[in-house]
Simulated assay, not measured.
Amino acid sequence: MTRIRRLFSALLRYWKITAPATVVVIGAAVAVIVATTDPEPAAVAYANVSRNFRACMLATTNDTPEANRVWPAIQAAAARAPINAERVTAPTGTSDQLVPYVNSLVALHCGVIITAGPELAAPVAAVAKTHPGQRFLAAGQPPTAANIRPLPSRPEDLTTALITTAQHGNPAH
């Protein structure tokens, strides 16, 4: 405590030196801040992704291996084209229990709904009949409607198919 008291008494005693020195230090700090600050902030670039093509993948908890094979291909397409990729995992259930999950993706205006796994074959077939304008890519099932296509076996082919589909627009919007 006595050291601090001695320091302040020295500053008060030599105020003619410490006051101008303090002003110089504060002035230098302000000059550095002003010199390093941009006079105009950079313009913010906005990207409206709401009108991008939407590719939605639906899988159940039992379809993890197939979903893990398909999802990177969807992400690769999204990186190369204006595509919003959505992934939904539904709990394992009966066909009637899975239909609302497929319908929710239709309601999200997905340009294409990609299903991973055989558990979704019946729900997709049911929804495809009631939504003929919705496109589906289904894994492990033969197409049962004109708007259901088989999922390409190679991830690269899926990526290419998604980019091509996205370039042709989104009929769901």
Score class of each variant (00 low, 15 high):
V32Q: 13
V32K: 10
I33M: 13
V34F: 10
A35M: 14
T36R: 13
T37F: 08
P39H: 15
P41T: 08
A42N: 13
A43W: 07
V44P: 05
V44T: 14
V44R: 10
N48T: 13
V49S: 15
R51L: 15
N52V: 07
N52Q: 11
F53A: 08
R54N: 08
R54G: 07
C56D: 06
C56R: 03
L58C: 06
A59G: 13
A59L: 11
T60M: 03
T61P: 09
T61I: 11
T61A: 10
N62G: 11
N62I: 10
D63M: 12
T64F: 13
T64Y: 12
T64W: 10
P65Q: 01
P65N: 02
E66M: 11
A67G: 05
A67C: 02
N68L: 10
N68A: 12
N68K: 14
V70P: 01
V70L: 06
W71T: 05
W71K: 03
W71P: 00
P72Q: 02
I74C: 09
I74P: 09
A76Q: 08
A77T: 00
A77M: 01
A78F: 04
A78S: 15
A79S: 14
R80C: 00
A81M: 08
P82D: 02
P82K: 08
P82M: 05
I83H: 03
N84P: 11
A85Y: 10
T89I: 13
T89C: 10
A90H: 02
P91H: 09
P91V: 01
T92K: 05
S95F: 01
Q97R: 06
L98D: 00
L98I: 05
L98V: 02
L98W: 02
V99P: 06
V102E: 06
V102H: 05
V102Y: 03
N103H: 08
N103F: 09
N103L: 12
N103E: 13
S104C: 05
S104K: 07
S104P: 07
S104E: 03
L105K: 04
V106W: 07
H109L: 00
H109R: 11
C110R: 07
G111V: 06
V112H: 05
I114E: 02
T115N: 10
T115M: 08
A116K: 04
A116Y: 01
G117R: 07
P118R: 08
P118S: 13
P118H: 12
E119N: 11
E119P: 07
E119C: 07
L120D: 02
L120F: 04
A122G: 03
A122N: 08
A122P: 00
P123G: 04
P123D: 08
V124S: 07
A125V: 03
V127D: 00
V127S: 00
A128S: 01
A128V: 01
K129R: 14
T130P: 11
T130R: 12
H131M: 10
H131V: 11
H131G: 00
G133F: 15
Q134I: 07
Q134A: 12
R135S: 11
F136A: 04
L137K: 01
A138C: 11
A138L: 10
A138S: 14
A139W: 12
Q141M: 15
Q141K: 13
P142Y: 13
P142M: 13
P143V: 10
P143R: 02
T144Q: 15
A145W: 01
A145F: 06
A145G: 11
